[in-house]
Design a protein around this nucleic acid. Structure first.
Lengths: 197, 197
DNA sequence: GGAATAATGTAACACCGTTACGCAAAGGTG
DNA sequence: CACCTTTGCGTAACGGTGTTACATTATTCC
């Protein structure tokens, strides 16, 4: 009953895509409800009907970040070398994600312009993506390559290093040609350091 | 000649302190020219006379971050163990700085709510602080503990790991009691991994 | 054909950063 | 002392923001 919905999930994903594009191009400050609505030829009502508020749209962007990561991790095959598998998850999945979606790193990981309780709203998506990485760290633990560390501790450290490398590269603080090598070298040194305790 | 200045550098540092406090308490979005001016019983003119714009005030906060880091690095003594000296620079200087001044990490390092050209305005301060760290990495290189890596590459990796650990801890993603241990373990594993190439 | 219901478009509100304008307070000059 | 110049300060306005109350539209049920 009532007036039929005009703004469906197709409009929602169009708004998300437009929002990500705006943040990539002009920064998060340039993301306004009016602008993202105009970008898809809709009114601001579309945003408020689909996401409730500007914060709701930002939360959806954060969740999107982890859904993309989860899918990419599932698509990356594993080998008989768990140490290298973990490093490649960082280089081929996380680094590629960051380069393709810098705005989603700033929103989903750095929580830019977000209150802590807002970030909690996509924590489930974050935990699911982290579970994929945890699997790879667990295989390292099974091989006795984690020393006295727990899987949780190693996972925490690995994600921290990935995020730090991502932040540096996005700020242009790596030599352009050797960025991938620095990722591989740094993650490799970390897991090598784990092996010898 | 002309009317004497009423807003001197004492007001400037009071504004900076108030601004940092506002960002710590309510986030960067809550930082407005009117609010920071009211916090020190001044008008918005004070901010525009001393810093030119809100961006100018944010740039001054970013520079302050690196000045504090530089002073703290100079104050930390070195021992005969360059590997441990570097790890302690991360744990006792960078981690303490981040816990004491979370707003300055978000501004000076993560460049939150900032255009790239704005961030360039405190790059000199950043480079000077980085030079202190470079000295410690250089002592590691002299001891042959860097493998084939250059000092610049190792410095880049070290700062990335510190920044990633800081981001995780500020988001409350570390177990409260074992955060310092995780910093020390992760930075230690990194330099240990460097040693064995 | 109304009546009820739900979604949409619009206009207003309070806030923001910024700036043009008028005023205030000093020194130089007669 | 009176006047002018110069400089800094306070205020009010402008266009922008997120949000919401209200009127309008479009559907289904009776």
């Amino acid at each position: 009953m009532g007036r039929p919905r005009e703004y469906d999930e197709r409009v929602a994903s169009a708004l998300l895509e437009a929002a990500e594009h705006i943040v990539d191009a002009d920064g998060l400050d340039a993301l306004s409800v009016r602008r993202v609505a105009n970008a898809v030829e809709a009114t601001t009502r579309a945003v408020y009907s689909l996401f409730g508020s500007k914060d709701g749209l930002v939360v959806a962007l954060g969740a999107r970040a982890f859904h993309l990561l989860e899918a990419a991790l599932d698509a990356l095959p594993t080998t008989s070398d768990p140490a290298n598998d973990l490093v490649e998850a960082g280089v081929l999945v996380f680094r590629r994600f960051v380069l393709d979606h810098p705005a989603l790193l700033r929103i989903g990981f750095q929580h830019e312009g977000m209150s802590p309780d807002l970030a909690c709203q996509f924590r489930d998506a974050s935990d699911q993506a982290l579970a994929r990485l945890q699997g790879r760290v667990g295989r390292l633990a099974e091989g006795g390559q984690l020393g006295q560390r727990s899987v949780a501790e190693a996972l925490c450290a690995f994600t921290a290093v990935c995020e730090g490398l991502a932040a540096l590269e996005l700020r242009g603080r790596m030599l352009p040609g050797s960025a991938e090598a620095l990722w591989r070298d740094t993650l490799g040194a970390l897991v090598a350091g784990w092996r010898i305790t």
